[in-house]
Each structure stands twice: as C-alpha cells, then as structure tokens.
Nucleic acid binder design. Structure first.
Length: 486
DNA sequence: TCTGGGGTCCTAATCCTA
DNA sequence: TCTGTAGGATTAGGACCC
C-alpha cells in the first residue's frame, strides 16, 4: 500500500535483488557430481532449440542464453547438453522464495531464479549495515538449504539493486551506497538500464549515445523525441538513478498462452488447423488450472521466413470453454495465409477474469454439437500437460522417454540419470547429489529394470533440526511417482 | 545451421459512441 | 438532426525481460 509514497523515497539500501547463478545449469551440476566444474548447457535439444542457461564453465567458450543450440554445440562441442527440468527447478525455487519471505512479506518474484525483496517492510534492515548483514545471511541460508549459490544486490531502488546483483555475479554481494548512484551509472553502457534492449540500444548508439551519462546529457526532451513519451520519460528517470517503483508482492496474470515451434515447418493446412485446436485445448487447460477465464483469444503464427503475425478476437464475455476458444482460434486462422509453411503456432487468452461469464450467444450456437464436444473434452482428462511438446518426427516413443539429464532408477544399480539415448540404447550414469562421480552403463531402451525417477533433494535434511525450510515436500521420501514418464 | 517459450508493456491505427 | 470531437475499446505489431 502507501508504504512508499513518492515524497518519501527511501535513502537506505533496503531493496534486495537476488539472482541465482546460472540457475538451471547449477542445479544440474549439484544434482550430478560428474558435471561439477564442467561446461553444462541447458536448453531445447531439437534442431531449433536455444540455450536456456549455460554454466560459467560453458560461458568461457562464448555460449550464452538465447543462443541457438547448434551454435552452442559448435562453440562447446564437449559440453553436457541437457533438457530443462521445470518441476525440479521449481522445487528449488520454492525453497529459495520461502527464505526470502522469511525476511519480508514484500517479495516480488520475477522468475524461478530471481526476486526483489523489500527488507525495510519486513523490518529486516533499515540502513546499510543491517542490509548487508541480511544479504550475507540470506546467501548463507540459500547455500545451506539448497546447496546452490545466488548473488545479491542491495540498493535504494529496484533498478539499482538489480544492477548491483549483476555486478555481484557469480556468488557475490554488492551494495550500492545511497548518494553514489549517479556517478556509478554515468560510465555504464545504456544497455545496463532495464528497458534498453538491442533495438533501443542501437537507436541510441546511432544518435551517438553509448553511456548512461550521455543519456543524461542528451536531455529528457531528446529521449522522448527519439523513443516516445513513456519510454523516453522512464529511461531519463532511470539514467538519473530515479526509480520509485515499489516492490509488489502480488502481481496478477494478464494473459495465458502456449506456443510450439516445430522441428520442421508445417505445410499441410489440415495439420495446421489440428495443431491450433491442440494448442487451444492446452491453453484452456492452463487457464482453468489457474482458475481464470478470458475474453480475448489470440492466435500467433510464425511463418517459414520468421515473419510473425498475431490475430485476435474479443468475445462478449470471458470464457474458459475449450470449444469456444477452439472455434475462435479456428476463425482467426481462417484469415491467415499459411502457404509456404509455418514454424511456430501459438494460442493465447487475455483480458482475464477470475470468473466465467459464459457467452450466451456462443453457448446457444454450441448446443447442437454440445454432447459430442463434452465427450471429447472429458476423454482428454483433467489438466494433463503433454510434456513432449510438438511432435518430433521419427522418434520412437520408447526412446522419447529417456531425455538427457532426467533421473532414472535401475532395479539393481540404483539411482542415476540419462546421459544420452538413441538407436535403441540408453546410457545412464549412476550417481546421486551426495555420491562420488558415478559409473556409466548402457541398456536397451526397453530394459524392464530401468524406470524414470524423481530428482533427489540436493541437500539432505539437517540432522540438528535447524529451521527446515520445507517449501515443497522436499525430503528424502519422495511422494508417489507422477504418472507420465518424464 | 539461425533465431524457444511465456510473459509484460507501449504505440499507433481504426472504429465506435457519447 | 447534423457535425465535429474526444475518448475508450479493439486490433496488430514491436520491444523487452528472464
């Protein structure tokens, strides 16, 4: 609420930004002793995959996030390439977020591995010394509970705290003393400021503006002229180290969407239509899972030449009816030319409400086909995300179960993880987070002794009964196996 | 051998309505 | 009743973020 009005902008460095270091890659290294100290790249392994996270060892070779996987393989051919394990990372993230919430009720998660904390609101800090102490303790607690390292930035605003944590990486803490902000920012690249990406950066560079100091010299009017009202004003304020955005604990979702990039462009119109229906269903499952409904249906199409277009339609009222979303998506697709092929399709819903006000007109139109459709939807079952994503041509289902990096259990040899698979064989390394580097064995992909397994906790529960931060059922006893063989 | 997936926010054009 | 206008809603696209 009004804990931070414009006129009492804080002057103590009590905004904390936490950023876990190379989070996905670090989690994989912690879980797999044989990968520690090695180049690890996590991302999509298909022909059109990109890097989600590269370990610091992989970054030495020039591999970085958002890089096409093929390019990463050229730069670091000997790195370990793994697919992301969302549920595993989420469990660790929950533990970290629980530690943050112990510091303050005002925690603003930005993603699984990043969050802002308002230390002042939680009474955890009030000046530089107390803030630094809170940051040091937090890093130690994260280490103890998750076994992973995170970097902490402390400053008087969100922007500066984020810049500080960036400077602290990896495994460090940086505090920006109030009063030093402008001189600190002045020599930095304009790209340091949040909201300056490749396009804005180029724009500024062409105008001879490369540093934050030069942005200030250019003046607010010039920035507004170049970048538009909202962006210009906002960036000028940032350049002056003015940022009074509060830490916001609850942010409501504005849209829900799903999209798939296909390994091979789809040319067949019927297949395109089928995929759109599938995506619409998946989107509705997500929507319902979040207890939401929405009015605006959005279709996204990326064509063979990477040109991307969106088409949207706003209904009379919010819906979470799969039939309604499917039909809207199909209508939108009717207006799109897909000859030449599409590489990506997506379906989204925005204009969200947390209740459903059925569109009576659409409902009326539905009545005739209702029985058939209801039967369809039931047959698909409740909220069951298909983990495979887009169909991969030519991969047998049996091999598809063994995804690189995923945990497995062998009846005799115990716990391990898939190092690779293909040609009817799967290679497994038998090790656990707390074991020595394990040995490698190869099996037939249909070996009955081999089964998918849940990831093991990275840190065993402390025997001294220390404050157990049990955010998500983390513990040696893993619950009943989740159905699908992820 | 190009370029994922899930989001947010902003802008501009267009249409509709008061 | 006609017209001009202001402002909101819708639509599409782009930039940015992790």
């Amino acid at each position: 609420m009004a804990w931070c009005s414009i006129k009492d902008v804080r002057n103590a460095p009590t905004v904390l930004h936490l950023d876990m270091d190379a989070f996905f890659a670090q989690a994989e290294q912690a879980s797999k002793p044989s990968l520690r100290g090695k180049a690890v790249v996590v991302g999509g392994l298909g022909p059109r995959g990109v890097v989600a996270t590269a370990s610091y060892e992989a970054r030495v070779f020039g591999v970085h996030s958002a890089m096409p996987m093929a390019q990463a393989r050229r730069l670091a051919p000997n790195a370990a390439y793994l697919v992301p394990r969302g549920a595993f990372y989420r469990r660790i993230s929950d533990q970290v977020m629980a530690l943050l919430r112990a510091l303050s009720p005002l925690v603003e998660p930005l993603s699984l591995d990043e969050a802002f904390v308002d230390l002042e609101a939680g009474g955890a800090a009030w000046d530089s010394e107390s803030a630094r102490l809170a940051g040091v303790r937090l890093r130690a607690d994260i280490r103890a509970v998750t076994g992973l390292t995170g970097s902490v930035g402390l400053a008087a605003s969100k922007m500066l705290a984020k810049i500080a944590s960036e400077q602290a990486k990896p495994d460090g803490l940086v505090l920006i003393e109030p009063g030093t902000e402008r001189s600190l920012l002045a020599p930095m690249s304009v790209r340091t400021l949040p909201g300056v990406g490749p396009a804005t950066g180029d724009h500024l560079r062409r105008a001879g503006i490369a540093t934050v100091g030069e942005m200030v010299e250019a003046g607010e009017g010039e920035l507004v002229r170049m970048l538009g009202k909202a962006h210009g004003h906002a960036l000028y304020a940032m350049a002056l180290a003015r940022d009074d955005r509060p830490v916001v604990a609850e942010r409501e979702t504005k849209s829900v969407s799903v999209e798939d990039t296909y390994d091979v462009d789809i040319h067949d119109r019927v297949r395109v239509e089928l995929e759109v229906q599938r995506l619409a269903d998946r989107c509705v499952r997500r929507l319902r899972g979040a207890g939401l409904s929405g009015r605006t249906i959005v279709l996204k199409v990326r064509r063979y030449d990477f040109s991307t277009l969106t088409r949207s339609e706003t209904l009379r009222g919010p819906t979470d009816d799969p039939a309604v979303v499917r039909e809207a998506a199909a209508r939108l697709l009717d207006a799109v030319d897909t000859t030449g092929g599409v590489r990506l399709l997506g379906v989204g819903v925005s204009g969200l409400a947390d209740f459903t006000q059925e569109d009576l007109f659409a409902q009326a139109a539905e009545v005739r086909a209702a029985e058939v459709r209801v039967a369809d939807v039931r047959a698909e079952g409740p909220e069951e995300e298909t983990p495979e994503g887009p169909a991969v041509a030519g991969v047998a289902p049996a091999e598809h179960r063994w995804r690189p990096g995923h945990d497995v259990r062998h009846a005799e040899l115990g716990h391990g993880w898939v190092q690779g698979s293909g040609l009817g064989r799967v290679t497994v390394r038998f090790e656990t987070p707390e074991s020595e580097v394990g040995r490698v064995r190869t099996f037939r992909t249909d070996d009955p002794d081999l089964a998918p397994a849940e990831p093991l906790p990275l840190v065993r529960r402390r025997p001294d009964g220390a404050p157990a931060v049990d955010a998500a059922g983390q513990g040696p006893a893993v619950g009943p196996r989740q159905g699908s063989g992820r």
